[in-house]
């Protein structure tokens, strides 16, 4: 019974969150919004020469599925998650890693130049950009002494992780930008390569891909709220409401942030990720470990 309710909550959160994200995207980041999703849906498809049809059709669905799987491990009330796995945080890590693969396949499958360039650029930047977020996840598990997200939420009853692990949220924000192909980390679908992995795409596939990006934003922000802002913890209001409020706040912050930071050239970003972000994440792990002791 409660399991069905939680699954329903995941589906509803993903659907409502995607719509909210589209609206916020239009208000805060100059994105297309809901109307452009609908317009994309109604357009006709684009054909390319000798594409890999299976992956081309499946990539948006995989992206959406990864967003849903990631949201399934998020506790909606203290002690309750749709998938309450003892390795919940590793499941989210797997979703992050597979996202890079899905974005690459999305760009590779049309067999056309711009999407392929987007796919290679994203593989080069998205992979190392994911590494700091792995250390952030490990650090978040330290005070809870568990890989279960339910335990991580419980460990934040005294103080939220955002206070105990000051570097965590900024580092995770970079991972969110990279996972959702946004702002400074948008090396896959950037306007400088005519839309990158989505350059040769129109119709329902394009609408679904854009919706999946927004859905991934919802999941990643819910995960950030769970890891650093206490998730469903909070006074008076019931747990799910707190989670929704925090997630919406994170979404607005990420969208505003993404729209305000310029995107450096890929080579410079690659250097930045390996020589600044990765050492920072080691430092973060050290600080979190010392504080957790």
């Amino acid at each position: 019974m409660i399991g069905a309710l939680l699954l329903l909550a995941v589906a509803a959160t993903l659907a409502a969150g995607t719509l909210l994200a589209a609206w916020l995207d239009r208000r805060l980041a100059g994105g297309g919004g809901i109307a452009s999703l609908a317009a994309d849906w109604l357009a006709g498809p684009v054909r390319t020469e000798a594409p890999d049809d299976m992956n081309r059709r499946l990539a948006p669905a995989w992206y959406l599925a990864l967003a849903a799987a990631g949201l399934c491990v998020v506790p909606f009330a203290p002690g309750h998650a749709a998938i309450d796995s003892p390795a919940g945080i590793a499941i989210w890590g797997a979703c992050e890693a597979l996202t890079v693969v899905v974005v690459f396949l999305h760009g590779w499958s049309p067999n056309a130049p711009f999407p392929l360039i987007g796919a290679y650029r994203y593989a080069a930047i998205g992979l190392p950009a994911m590494l700091p977020s792995m250390f952030v996840l490990i650090a978040a598990a330290l005070p809870a002494e568990s890989l279960s997200l339910v335990a991580i939420v419980d460990s934040q009853r005294g103080a939220w992780n955002v206070l105990r692990q000051p570097l965590g949220l900024p580092l995770f924000a970079v991972a969110i930008l990279s996972l959702t192909l946004r702002g400074p980390m948008d090396y896959a679908d950037g306007a400088d390569i005519a839309g990158g992995t989505s350059a040769e795409e129109a119709g329902p596939a394009r609408a679904l891909w854009q919706a999946a990006r927004l859905a991934m934003l919802v999941s990643a922000c819910a995960m950030a709220a769970t890891l650093f802002l206490g998730g469903p913890l909070g006074p008076v209001l019931p747990g799910p409401v707190w989670l929704w409020l925090k997630t919406a706040g994170m979404m607005a912050a990420i969208l505003a942030l993404g729209a305000r930071i310029a995107r450096p050239p890929p080579a410079r970003m690659l250097g930045l990720v390996w020589t600044v972000l990765l050492p920072l994440s080691f430092l973060h792990l050290l600080i979190s470990g010392v504080i957790a002791l």
């Binding site: 796995s85 003892p86 390795a87 590793a90 890590g93 890693a97 597979l98 693969v101 593989a123």
Partner: peptide, 17 residues
């Protein structure tokens, strides 16, 4: 569960490389 999921995320990264 940990071994299984670790296999998945490690291999996703490795196969991308």
């Amino acid at each position: 569960p940990y071994i299984g999921i670790a296999t998945i995320f490690m291999m996703a990264v490795e196969m991308m490389v």
